[in-house]
Design a protein around this nucleic acid. Structure first.
Lengths: 246, 246
DNA sequence: GCAAAAGTGTTTTAGCTACACCCATGT
DNA sequence: ACATGGGTGTAGCTAAAACACTTTTGC
């Protein structure tokens, strides 16, 4: 069945999703508890099989809206890479997976899909530390996707994808702090963001926080690249590992 | 045959290679003339099918050494992304392809592989302008891979992968000029490269050019990231489209 | 008034641009 | 001598880092 002839092998392909969000200042990833073999009962990234007449992006978008209940068009979705180790999945024919990075604002508690016993947001730091021992090669995929997200904050404007439709500069700064795990200088960040054309556009209205001066509200701008980039290298003192205790 | 059951489809997977090099100051890509259907007689990127018990990286490395005659370990090879449009290949079962970017020093004239009528280095600018109308979605793949290479020169040290084992700073500068298609200020480039720890390491010997003072020879350094990055944005006057006349 | 978060001003420094200049070699 | 490419010096600018300071709200 798996051999089609000559030196070619027929395979199945899945799209697996690393859906990141920020809840109470901590970078979180959506995990599901598997309800089927293999790895039944273990935590894994949400995902599903490629269907006939469908691109892998379409498959990823379908899974994303199933898992989050939100139209995928409104969320940021991009490929990470293809994972093809023959030992990554015991099933035959072989199953390759194309990993996707999805970035979402806080969506509230998830509802388990059809092929999952459970679905929950977990702190990325804790999962990367190995607390769950994810199914398949999903620990590797998660690490790669998180690194891709961290890198993209530097030279792109996707940080706004973690925010609600309207957000304050302070909330955007908390995105960088949660994803990078560092403190960012508040005054310099404010100038950098408001001074980068097309990063954010003010709505004109303000929002009152529990404390302090009301903050100007912004929406995402048209620019996708951030040049010059936001630097994560400088002497920003690292913060304690967040989320392991949340 | 293509349907395995439920909502899953069995597919074939290929690895297609964008092998870039620089010959006489021009960025070139390796193309093969197809000897089989579909697209028989049309130019395409070299590639081949994924085999049993093999990762897609292994398949790409195998094709790369077949096409270039060089051990793939010595060349830079990285994924671009998975291409999965159901119309990209007329064959059934569906054929998805994982594109790879390979960067090589000037290797001389290629020898056609088993499933190609011909193999040749073509100027990237000319191919991107549509002179060949490549098979499948290979025009898109080429454009994506070239953009990935251009971006990587900014924040990584892979430019050395275009050079011979020993090279001069002038040769490395010609890499940037050929890939980006811009003039780079010679004195500033020299300082930037030699002042970036781990980018290049001097061998101690020098090489005499046809003209001028002998140049110090360097080998690639251990660093892979270049921080701060090399900027391609500044007021570098664009050079005329190269290669269309080569 | 005080706490807290938003937002502005200012000094210093890193790193890049632009371009003048010197060096070492072949013809 | 002079052409050619390698390599250094330097003035000026941009933008970031660091941190002091002012503004606007709730209590």
């Amino acid at each position: 069945m798996a051999m089609v002839g000559r030196d070619r092998v027929a395979v199945m392909v899945t799209a697996d999703l690393v859906i990141l969000t920020i809840r109470s200042g901590t970078l979180m990833v959506l995990l599901v508890k598997r309800d089927n073999e293999p790895f039944k009962g273990r935590f894994a990234l949400p995902g599903g099989f490629l269907r006939d007449q469908e691109t892998i992006e379409k498959a990823a978008a379908r899974e994303l809206s199933e898992e989050t209940g939100v139209r995928a068009e409104s969320l940021h979705l991009e490929q990470v890479r293809l994972y093809s180790d023959p030992r990554r999945d015991p099933r035959r024919p072989r199953v390759l997976t194309c990993a996707f990075l999805a970035i979402a604002p806080d969506l509230g508690d998830p509802v388990p899909g059809t092929d999952a016993q459970d679905a929950l947001w977990s702190p990325v730091d804790a999962v990367l530390a190995g607390t769950h021992d994810l199914a398949f090669d999903h620990d590797t995929i998660l690490a790669d996707a998180v690194e891709q997200a961290r890198a993209k904050l530097e030279y792109s404007t996707i940080a706004t994808a973690f925010c609600q439709p309207q957000f304050t500069i302070g909330e955007l700064r908390e995105v960088y702090e949660a994803v990078w795990g560092v403190d960012v200088d508040r005054p310099n960040f404010h100038r950098k963001v408001t001074g980068s054309p097309g990063f954010v556009v003010p709505t004109g209205s303000k929002r009152q926080q529990p404390n302090g001066r009301p903050a100007t509200l912004y929406t995402p701008g048209a620019a996708e690249v951030l040049s010059p980039p936001m630097l994560r290298t400088p002497r920003t003192r690292a913060r304690p590992l967040s989320g392991a205790d949340a």
